[in-house]
Amino acid sequence: MTTRYKAVVLSKTSDEQLGDLLDEKYHLLQADSPVQTLQLAQEHDLKLILIDGNSIADDDVIGICRELKDNSELPVVVLGHEETLQHKLDAYDAGCDDYLSPSMMFELKARIDRVLFNKIANDQLKMQLKQANEMAFIAMSDTSDLGVNIQFLLDVNRCNNIDELGMRLFQALQSYGINCSLQMRSRYGVKNMEANGMAKDMESVLMSECKDKGRYVDFGRRSIMNYGGVSLLVKNMPVDDEKKYGAIKDNVFSLLQGCDARIQALDNLQSLALESQLVKRLSGQMSSMMSAVDVSYQGVMRDIADVVENMADGVEQSLQFLGMDERQESALQNIMETGIVETNRVFNEGIRVDEGLKVFLQKIDRVFADDHVDPQEVQALLDMMPKNS
């Protein structure tokens, strides 16, 4: 039997269509005020709060969302009608976990499911993470921010993929006591991450939309920091502590620079790997083509030699019927013999050229046979090729 999760819909009107859409997985309760919503949260094992922005004014939605998040840890999803980035930023700053505008309503169930699963995962990890964070804080309490950054920059060069890079960054950020979402953009895709490994849709969208808005995008207690292919959304900036606020921005930014440099390095390594595969396949393709050309070429040359020899035999047999004197016959025989000799010479020369190409292709195969190419062998190949004039 499918588990049905309890959720409350805060709305000034009753939306039967919403109930029908979510009825399979959610048991929806109705509330018309934040007070009633919080009361239902105390009386029932609620997993989610939905705010119907279509029946509530925009300014009221933001205030309601902030009031609910100040008094409850339940995730809040706003079903709004505003499409603007600023309204989404305001809603997120008020504590909204996701915001679905009219153009996104087709994915309502999937988005709500992801918010719910993030809540469940976070609850399960909460006790373990609390203990781990306490131990990490004790271990790193005597370590300066500079030391943490230097260690990260040393470790980052050993990261072999984007996922490992993101987790190392989150480990470094633990010393700053900040809660973050991360987005890394490489030439081969975009990776959104949370400290627990699960990305949240709304935060991913906000970072994508703010990545070209400057190095810092500040709103409320949140800040989005951008550098190159990296964006970091800090959810709990210490806005009341100016010194700590500035230190976090300055020190964390250097971590983003190191992260971006490693993303570029990983992109280059992947590009080199693809280029190496291309060269290997081209070499194999050329070898196959040359084998076919070789067979065809030698067959043509043999046929030409046979034709010339047959012509010589025919001419020699016909000399006695042509009424030519001995001197004329000798001259014609010399011409035919010279033609046979030259044909054989051209044939043999063609074979030598073909063998040279075979040797060159064999050397290419040997050079790229291993994953790690020997630079000296590559240089030797280059020396065999004519330089561009």
Rank of each mutant, 00 (worst) to 15 (best):
R185H: 14
T3H: 10
V373N: 10
L278R: 07
A132H: 03
V217Q: 03
A261E: 09
L100V: 12
I263N: 02
Q328K: 05
V156G: 01
A265Y: 14
L79E: 07
K358S: 13
Q183V: 10
I120T: 10
I224R: 01
F253E: 09
I64K: 00
G197Q: 07
D155L: 02
A94P: 05
Q39W: 05
N54E: 14
Y26I: 15
V307W: 07
P34V: 14
M167H: 06
Q379A: 13
K235T: 15
L28A: 03
G189V: 09
L85G: 14
E326C: 00
G314K: 02
D52E: 07
D370E: 13
N192D: 15
V346Y: 11
L322N: 10
V77M: 06
R262F: 04
L10S: 01
Q86W: 02
V190H: 05
Q42R: 11
G284F: 04
H87R: 08
I112K: 06
E134W: 05
H81L: 12
E316Q: 10
D70G: 03
E275I: 09
E107F: 13
K126L: 12
L129Q: 15
M290E: 12
A31S: 14
Q379T: 13
D70K: 04
V9G: 01
K25N: 14
I178H: 02
E242D: 14
D370R: 04
V378K: 08
M311L: 15
D218C: 07
L100I: 15
V378A: 11
N310W: 07
M384K: 07
V217I: 07
S72V: 06
F347I: 06
N122C: 13
N226M: 00
V156N: 03
F360D: 11
H87C: 11
D123M: 07
V378D: 05
Y26E: 11
L381Y: 04
D201Q: 09
R345E: 12
R66H: 09
Q183P: 01
V35L: 06
A41G: 00
K249M: 06
N161T: 11
R187T: 08
Q257G: 04
R327V: 12
D212M: 00
F106Q: 12
D145E: 09
G147Q: 13
K249Q: 12
I62V: 15
G80R: 00
K191Y: 08
L21N: 05
D260H: 01
K191P: 01
V35K: 06
L22I: 15
M135W: 12
S144H: 08
V373G: 08
K358T: 13
R4G: 13
K69Y: 03
L21D: 10
N226S: 01
G228Q: 03
K69L: 02
E309C: 01
Y227K: 01
D294W: 00
L74H: 04
G197W: 02
T3M: 09
A7I: 11
D59F: 11
R168V: 00
A265N: 13
S14E: 12
E329D: 07
L266Q: 07
E73S: 15
M104N: 11
C180D: 04
L10T: 02
S223V: 14
S223N: 10
G166F: 00
A331H: 09
I263A: 03
S208N: 09
T2G: 05
L38I: 02
K119N: 10
C259M: 04
L255Y: 05
